[in-house]
Amino acid sequence: MSSIPDKLFLWLCFCALSLSLFFLPAGVQERIQGTVRFASEPGKCLAAITARMTREALGGLPENMSVAERDALLQELTSARQRAFIAEKKIYGLQKNNDYLQYLLRLSKLPEQPHVLVVCEVIKRNPLSDYYGTLLINRGYSDGLKAGQAVRSVEGLVGVISETSAREAVVTLLGSAKFSLPGKIAGKDIRGIIHCPADYAPAPAILGFFPPEYLTLYSLSGDSFTSVEIEDQVVTCDLAGGNLVADIPIGIIRKIETDTAGACRYQISPAAALGHLNFLLVAIPK
């Protein structure tokens, strides 16, 4: 029988093999991850089916929803999406007419970028870390999703897509320390960068942890800083390029500050809650 030092050497060899995975180039890692995710799809489908059946047998879906409540929520989300779509279509029509009239009056203006909303289901949120930092949705680049696209709930923006695979995408939520986004104050010509603050407000250490209380809008550009008031709405802007749809509500201004350099800085209360997210909408620009 092999002695303990032989087994220890064997274990050290496998630890070295595991450590070598850290040093693989990023492209090789992505290919391996893609292959492994493809190979594990049947297992994940079977696991999801059995887990869902068990959960329903034990009295409901996540967050203790019954089947009837889940159907009601789905219907509510679908009708909210339909209303949003109809309203946006109407606004789009009016905007097109407006653009045409402005063109006739030689006051041409770039039309707002139209977009479509894709309903996605939240399939994973890690309770061990980053519960309010990232989540996984069940659509990927095969459904037209790309990194940088806005993800919203009925109330407003909840995050931005950071990574996609064929059938899944990782969303960086408002509560992540890595979250940053260009934003503007609706109705006023002020744009800036929105960050989640690195230091959260002190919270009691009970089970779980809190989402961020506020976001910060700074690095401002514009010329009407004195016209900003409390409860002004902050929305997304397309400063970063074609993937982010503009005018999605992010939150409202709750406090106006001045930093040490004398520049204005605004605290924003997020419009969308990050607690119970089952279905989300991804705004894909056309």
Partner: peptide, 16 residues
């Protein structure tokens, strides 16, 4: 191994 790893990945969504 495949099934148990898949379970560990998927279960927190249904039993958080």
């Amino acid at each position: 191994l495949l099934l148990c790893c898949a379970k560990q990945i998927v279960l927190p969504h249904y039993f958080p």
